[in-house]
């Protein structure tokens, strides 16, 4: 037997058997899931995707179980990767709390889910640590809007605190517009987030930084003509870009503050300086524009961290 063959066999014998479960949203994109499972099966011995609604959280005197069919996801997997959105907030929080009791590796956590699903809270958490962001406010009663206007001034971006994909975002140019909008928004949500409108050097464009551990991949997003929001789901486009050290540092620092190993940080150019506009707990991989690049990176990273975690536990 050649020495090369022996080396490969030894490596195979030493290879840890690793398993991953990806917990997704009830409404998921099939092509993304297919790609993730396909990549995961190349690397992991066992890979499963399950939607959040099919999992049962069982609490008894004996403790806690996260059940799917006959499996206990808390003990039967080495890596648990939660990929659900604010639509699954109530169940998602409970599942993330349950996952905290598991020894499996998880790149995200309950606190980061709660913060990133709250536009103002994200801004407060990051700006406190010196990450450049947008001047933001949060209020309950439209009666005290003057306290906000004194801080921000017009134009203002009004946001529902857990909006996503550009939904629930309105640009308010003056007091007249504000008064009519405020009462309407207040009907739907008790808390209203207002941010200063960021004057970009390149309007309708922003940079999405995918953070995967210590690695950052930059994508520039360009808005559809006539829309000031650059979300791809609203008809924009995207391309990979070379990032400056400034952007990389902001992205990595933000991810670290929020204790997230995998996430996407959206930045905008505000008169020559980049500011964080949003952090995504469940970033889409932009398959249409960059293929499976991010999916491959995520899976490889999860495998590596899963192995490290498993060795630590042993």
């Amino acid at each position: 037997m050649s020495s090369k063959k022996i080396k490969i066999e030894k490596k195979f014998a030493l290879k840890e058997k690793m398993s991953i479960v990806i917990i997704g949203s009830k409404k998921f994109k099939q092509s993304t899931v297919n790609a993730m499972i396909s990549e995961a099966q190349e690397v992991f011995d066992k890979a499963m995707f399950v939607t959040i609604d099919k999992i049962q959280i069982i609490t008894t005197e004996k403790g806690l179980t996260l059940k799917y069919k006959d499996q206990n996801l808390l003990t039967d997997y080495d890596v648990i990767y939660p990929r659900f959105s604010s639509n699954d907030f109530l169940l998602g929080e409970a599942i993330l709390k349950a996952i905290e009791t598991s020894k499996a590796y998880n790149p995200l956590n309950l606190k980061s889910f709660q913060i990133t699903n709250h536009k103002y809270y994200t801004s407060q958490k990051l700006s406190k640590e010196g990450v450049p962001g947008i001047l933001s406010t949060l209020l309950i009663s439209p009666k005290y809007i003057d306290l906000v206007i004194k801080e921000i001034g017009y134009p203002i971006v009004m946001k529902l605190i857990s909006g996503f994909a550009g939904k629930g975002v309105v640009l308010v140019k003056d007091k007249g517009q504000m008064n009519s909008l405020l009462d309407t928004v207040h009907l739907f949500e008790e808390c209203i987030c207002m941010q200063k409108f960021v004057k970009s050097k390149n309007p309708g464009t922003d940079v999405r930084c995918y953070v995967t551990g210590d690695e950052v991949t930059g994508i520039m997003r360009i808005a559809k003509k006539g829309d000031w929001r650059s979300n791809l789901s609203r008809g924009g486009s995207a391309k990979i870009i070379e990032m400056t050290q400034e952007i990389k540092k902001i992205a990595l620092t933000s991810a670290k503050i929020l204790n997230m190993d995998i996430c996407a940080i959206d930045l905008m150019d505000n008169n020559g300086k980049y500011v964080v506009i949003e952090v995504n707990f469940m970033p889409g991989p932009f398959k249409k524009y960059i293929g499976n690049l991010m999916i491959k990176k995520w899976i490889k990273f999860l495998y590596k961290k899963g192995i490290e975690n498993k060795k630590k536990i042993k």
């Binding site: 959040i52 609490t59 005197e61």
Partner: peptide, 21 residues
């Protein structure tokens, strides 16, 4: 549901429960 899970993970006895989607 989160309150339930939080109490259970802290060893506090609650009525047996199942949360499902």
């Amino acid at each position: 549901p989160l309150q339930n899970v939080t109490l259970t993970t802290n060893g506090i006895s609650c009525p047996n429960s199942i949360i499902t989607g």
